[in-house]
């Protein structure tokens, strides 16, 4: 941890630790360079990407991409948190460092709608290619929750219309790399937002 402070005085923020995890927050622009140093520098030696996850802190807040790294030289997991803007969820891809981040990033794109710049295979991995929601966002409500909330009656579910070719011609034009366009994606119809927001937006953890 001390090493982290010494080596990255500008970029590393919000350092925090418990018995087996060291946590650090990095800005979006510096993530690839910092992770490359963490991986290649013999002092760190975090050679293995254990996990990469995305967290949604609710409407009005930001996304976060969380990397867990393993090193054989340090007795703790290293957790790297990278905040991502919600309105423009873009962050650089780390597939150039770990090829195995590919499926992690595809999953984050599928579930959260975060676009990883530089990932050459960013498409949906779980849902059908023409599915148009991001199920793990906090504003995507499961049916029972929708019934309980003030947005009752609004069903955010979208079924994959696998053979529905018309959707493609409408949605997809030339470049499909960012399909579906992240800024046009609305899970719950707009009129449900003023009321639905309270139940969906939980208090942000410390």
């Amino acid at each position: 941890m001390r090493l982290l402070v010494e080596r990255f005085p500008e970029t590393a923020r919000d350092l925090w630790t418990d018995e087996d995890t060291v946590e650090v927050q990095l800005p979006r622009d510096a993530v690839v360079e910092t992770l490359r140093t963490l991986r290649d520098d013999p002092e760190f030696g975090f050679f293995m990407l254990a996990d990469a996850a995305a967290v949604d802190y609710g409407i009005g807040h930001h996304f976060e991409v969380v990397y867990h790294l393993f090193s054989d030289r340090h007795p703790a997991w290293l957790r790297v948190r990278v905040p991502v803007e919600r309105a423009n969820p873009r962050t650089p891809s780390v597939t150039s460092l770990w090829t195995g981040a590919m499926f992690h990033e595809r999953e984050m794109y599928d579930m959260m709608g975060i676009v990883f710049e530089g990932n050459r295979d960013l498409r949906r991995i779980y849902m059908s290619p023409d599915y148009r929601s991001f199920p793990q966002r906090k504003d995507f409500l499961l049916p029972d929750d929708a019934a309980d909330s003030s947005a009752a009656g609004v069903n955010p579910l979208e079924r994959p219309e696998t053979w529905d070719l018309t959707t493609f011609s409408r949605e997809l034009t030339s470049s499909a790399a960012t399909y579906p366009p992240p800024d046009t994606q609305v899970d719950v119809p707009a009129e449900a937002y003023p009321h639905g927001q309270e139940s969906a937006d939980k208090s942000r953890p410390a």
Binding site: D51, A53, F103, K202, S203, P205
Partner: peptide, 26 residues
């Protein structure tokens, strides 16, 4: 591995699982 975030409520705020065979298939 499991990465869990709590916001003080009775349910996990975020619950993330990393499954090894998913990554191995790459």
């Amino acid at each position: 591995s499991v990465y869990a975030i709590s916001d003080g409520g009775p349910t996990p705020y975020r619950f993330r699982m990393r499954d090894p065979s998913f990554i191995s298939l790459q």
